[in-house]
Nucleic acid binder design. Structure first.
Lengths: 218, 218
DNA sequence: AGGTATTAAAATATCGACATTAGTCTCAAA
DNA sequence: TTTGAGACTAATGTCGATATTTTAATACCT
């Protein structure tokens, strides 16, 4: 029975708790509180926290413990700009290299996303929708075939999560997702038509629009 | 006196020891041996190792300890291809955004690299040259102005280090660096002339050539 | 006898408790 | 208001107990 060690378990939970905003930006992560919450000793905790430091989700001050990385407007802009460039790169390579299985995967993911648009209602499950949304975009970029590039992309996606959750909550039930939905359709059309320039422009815009909305919120 | 904790110290040393190849790919990292070598307890060690896992330099198998990540031909190709794309992206943005201070920095770094070409002799200090080489390329890309993009670039650079050291040792004293030197001159010219297309082609090739040499060695 | 399965023993990883050390806060005195 | 001493809080590291894996040895079967 593969029982992963406690450091791995606490890493997973703690990461979620930070990304979803349960531990707010700048929040001091006290050992005793975390020990209590996750029911582990200090050593697995320190291991997990060390890893989150490398992921740039947590800061460490020597001899003064850990705290959640602050969110700033400049970081927001930087992350989203970089994501736009990287995602655009992935889409471009995917269009060059993708095969029929890749195309089918896109169609399937787009269909699932479309079918569950109801999750975007005011009382819907935004996290569930975001899951499908993520899978849709992943279906497109995985055609690039580069593990390293996809890993870089995932790192940035996760680092953007705290900001994205703000955007999701802000838009919930305001019909602001309609534009988003339309962009997805256009993207699928451009990608399947292997229209490189159009697809790159669309994906870049698709990422930068939420960034501009968020800049007004911070 | 800013005395960083022992986990940070051992992280730095251990990372170097892996990147320089002192601990070979696939090597089992036994706690007792590391404890002895770095003169620390197991906990700081586990912290450092956890971080190296996130950096993808070591692997962890539950209850079976840590070992240095293996090197593979496919990873080599993937890392260098991805580096070529990312570096090209950085150079492109730098050309668009760079100012005069940026230009001056490039000229200065190029001059220092040129002046110390003697380090490439068979009996030279290759690590010292690589330091200058790295600084030269950094002088160019830092003009892109994106912290996130530069961080991604640095991650890939470090991940490529183990392969690069092979290349450096292979080329030492064989005059194979002459082409490399010429590429640097051409790159500086293209960048300062703000010739986007030429610069992107040059930097991409500059990264991919060592990759092709290395593919023959593995 | 050769090879495989079983069991015992050594080695190793993991985790929590405790002691040490550093940082912070309070309060009084200058 | 500033400064310094002491108490308190929190982070860090070492040690030891426990659980798991790996190695070795022995017994068993073909």
């Amino acid at each position: 029975m593969p029982q992963e060690n406690s450091a791995a378990k606490v890493l997973h939970h703690l990461k979620q708790d930070i990304l979803t905003g349960l531990f707010a930006a700048g929040h001091k992560l006290k050992m005793n509180a975390l020990k209590e919450r996750y029911q582990v000793g200090v050593n697995p905790l320190r291991e997990a926290l060390s890893q989150l430091v490398v992921m740039q989700l947590v800061q460490v001050q020597d001899q003064r413990g850990y705290r959640v990385c602050p969110v700033t407007q400049s970081e927001l802009v930087d992350i989203y700009d970089t994501r736009a460039h990287i995602e655009s790169l992935c889409v471009g390579l995917a269009i060059e290299r993708g095969d029929e299985v890749w195309e089918a995967g896109i169609v399937a993911a787009a269909y699932r996303l479309q079918s569950n648009a109801g999750l975007l209602q005011a009382d819907g499950d935004l996290q569930a929708w975001e899951q499908l949304h993520q899978q849709f975009h992943y279906a497109i970029v995985k055609g690039c075939g580069s593990e390293e590039l996809l890993r870089v992309r995932l790192d940035l996606y996760e680092k953007a999560s705290r900001y994205r959750n703000l955007w999701l909550r802000h838009n919930a039930g305001h019909g602001a997702f309609d534009v988003n939905q339309m962009e997805h359709e256009q993207l699928v059309t451009a990608v399947l038509a292997r229209d490189l320039e159009a697809a790159k422009k669309l994906i870049s815009k698709h990422i930068l629009v939420p960034s501009q909305v968020l800049q007004g919120l911070l």
